[in-house]
Amino acid sequence: MNWFLPPSVSTFGPEIDRLYYIILVITGVIFLVTEFLLVYFLIKYRKRDGHVAEYIEGSMKAEIIWTAVPAVIVIGLGIMSFGVWSDIKDPSRIPPDSYELILHGRQFEWEATYAGADGILELDCEPDEIPCGDDFSLLNQINVPVNRPVTVHLRASDVLHSFFLPDLRVKQDAVPGMSIPVWFEATQTGQYTIGCAELCGLGHYTMEGVLVVQSASEFQQWETDQAVALQDESPGGSTVTLPEETAIQTPDNAAAKEVMVASGAEDS
């Protein structure tokens, strides 16, 4: 049993974690007190010979106390949550100079699209034409710079998916027909999990990706390399081949392997 959240590596992570631990302490105390009272009463007022229950119909004073106290606690928690939620989810509060990319969820992969050498991300690109212009895209991997806000324009081409970065405290459903801006700012370089948190079909459990957080210089180098590599290959946009270590591991059992092959064939 582990009640501690995994370490967070985003700017708003500590805010969420603080709220979580406040609620954990408050509910933990209420849990202990009420369960203790329950057990204590059960033992103390167990049936004994010659004993009679006391005829008590209720108490208005008690009712007012246990109506008012929980109300104050939960409304307080609500007010504490307002600001954090708005900072994370309100589109108008997305930091203005954020690095932008598009992320498409589809059965059963994530496709990230980056601005190419021209530095312009083609946001109006139709899903079946990605990437447009000299944009480039890669599968099941997102590279982002550390300590810089990143806005992911989250989209889905078939069914609902949910973009989940457990280490960064990010979760947002990807909805067909919508482009939902999701922002975060990673505070530590490294590789982190991208998961799908919404049931999206039989390969749902394989829809894993990797978030690569790089230092500013590394990221710039990576971006340039990608754009150059693409220009050498073809004038239009293209999909970058996945590095070996980030490819999805194939499932253990044979049936699931077939599934993977089938879905891969469908999407290519």
Binding site: Y45, R46, K47, G58, A71, I75
Partner: peptide, 29 residues
Amino acid sequence: MITTMLIAVPSAIKVFNWLGTIWKGNIHF
């Protein structure tokens, strides 16, 4: 969020009233 939080209030009323019901009872298990 606020409407959801408010559900805790009648829920708490019920729990405390159940606790109040066994308080000073003569409990047949």
